[in-house]
Design a protein around this nucleic acid. Sequence first.
DNA 1: CTGAAAGCGCTTACAG
DNA 2: CTGAAAGCGCTTACAG
Lengths: 335, 335
Amino acid sequence: MEKRVSMKDVANKVGVSIALVSYVMNGLEKEKRVSVKVAKKIREAAAKLNYQPNQIARSLRKGSTNTIGLIVADIANPFFSQLARIIEHEAINFGFTVVFGSSDEDEFKSESLINTFLNRHVDGFIIVPTEGTNIQIQSLMRKNIPLVLIDRFFPEIKTSYIILDNYKATFSATSHLIEKGYKRIAMVAYKSSLIHMKERIRGYTEALDKFNMADNTCVKEVKFEKVQKDMEKILNNLLTKNKKIDSIILATNTLSISALYCLRKNNITIPNDLGFIGFDGGECFDLFSPRLTHVKQPLEEMGKEAFRVILDLINGSNKTSQIMLNSSLVICSSC
Amino acid sequence: MEKRVSMKDVANKVGVSIALVSYVMNGLEKEKRVSVKVAKKIREAAAKLNYQPNQIARSLRKGSTNTIGLIVADIANPFFSQLARIIEHEAINFGFTVVFGSSDEDEFKSESLINTFLNRHVDGFIIVPTEGTNIQIQSLMRKNIPLVLIDRFFPEIKTSYIILDNYKATFSATSHLIEKGYKRIAMVAYKSSLIHMKERIRGYTEALDKFNMADNTCVKEVKFEKVQKDMEKILNNLLTKNKKIDSIILATNTLSISALYCLRKNNITIPNDLGFIGFDGGECFDLFSPRLTHVKQPLEEMGKEAFRVILDLINGSNKTSQIMLNSSLVICSSC
DNA sequence: CTGAAAGCGCTTACAG
DNA sequence: CTGAAAGCGCTTACAG
């Protein structure tokens, strides 16, 4: 087993103090006026011994870890894993490492993840906040920990965040259905007090309102813990009762997929039996027959902005950045 | 801004030494025979001050970080993100944190990730190794760093690994097609020297061989950097030339998806024009019409075993665990 | 039962 | 231009 070499080893080899090695390793030789000759020797010795800095020691001393904590609802959800990929990429480019965790929309898991990451002294957090985590977020704010929320936020807490203009997203999706001649448009969303869900629902209801179709407003909510079951019940209901719906908008990608399963199971064909608009779809939506019209989120921008903002905060900025991005409606053949 | 409280603060408050606080915080009060009274006082003070241990300091002192480094090819690929989810879950249960990175099948990115994680003193690695990383893996072995490979491995290096029985997987997929009466079965795989790809190809060729159809062996390889382009060329070729193929097996999920895009684009219908078997599909495969027959990997088991093995190694075991799991062929309606 | 002290591997004022 | 030393917040032999 090879032993790790420390600055001391390099210093001993060259016959200088540890301080000099530290200066050179950190590229401070100019600033600290280390002689060119010694600097060269140190660099050579370091290379020869294959010296690698111990980031743990560095972190303890400097109080910063060059690590960011990423908490999403579920890393296995393509929406979040794609986001994670983008954030990871940015992080690496700036010399940061990402630790991640999935909250499962559970406030206690969220709390535990935040504490774990705090104890490991991440320099900042990128969090997809879950219902009931307001206090946790406020506590981070009080501790002055760099923080940016993503996908969702709390209107009553003044944090930085990057979100979608959810209102616009569903407003335009709904309008699209109306323009296509659909009359009885339903929306299925998650039962949640979180703003992104509320806004998606508001976009839908206000679009109906605008076209004087408020009477046909039909919002159904499923519980996060039993999506499939709730969805089946709801769809069975909506598709069989007197005032049958003629089209549907789903408020998230998981809901979209769940709905597709149900529809297929019940032999409901799209768009003949039912018009359909999904939410941030990806490959599944493209490969479905017919191709599914869906709301597309600007993932790349979202991830990049989130990292840019957190880096800014880590570097001492005290500016609160609240950024709202626009989705696009990808029009295919499902309505 | 709240200041972080350290053991010293707790010690001062109670009027004891830091050592005692450390013992109590680590639950060593029995072992170190701390008086019940003092232990209680310390616990109370710690709770009151909301003391949180500084894991960085702990890590520096103990030489272990309770962190594992997870390197996959691409965290945005559902196969890997689902695996990540399972590993994360296990990790948390055992008090570990996961740092992750995507190698993009690039040996230099892999090297850089490994070094980054080494400098951060992860306790162990779970790695999906990329072509050309043999040396990196060997170097980790030499340093005696706990390591488990996953999805792929290097036959010439004696590491622990958890992999699929790739040979069996495609052997049975191919046999299934043959039994269904298909005569001209093609396989599209990645161009790679890695064992998992070789084995998937071998499973295919040996199945043909067994049924005396070796003459119809047709393996095409696409480059990782230009999947879509290569795939189109290959499929155009296979579907138009004299000896047209009647069915196809794809060697990974990304290849499967890529093929589906191409087929759709060229109006090839499954299974009428072409029999189809995909690899670890997930939702896309289920929702496709017709439902796609595919090789299903035991993700849960793979992730859990990987963590179990790495934990074992971290805890000092020097046993090399080489585990091969079985896939199942999910038979649907695409062939 | 308890405390003083060394040390993990760095960074960084300070002195010369 | 260079070095000695303090200190980041812990853990852990050691002494009493």
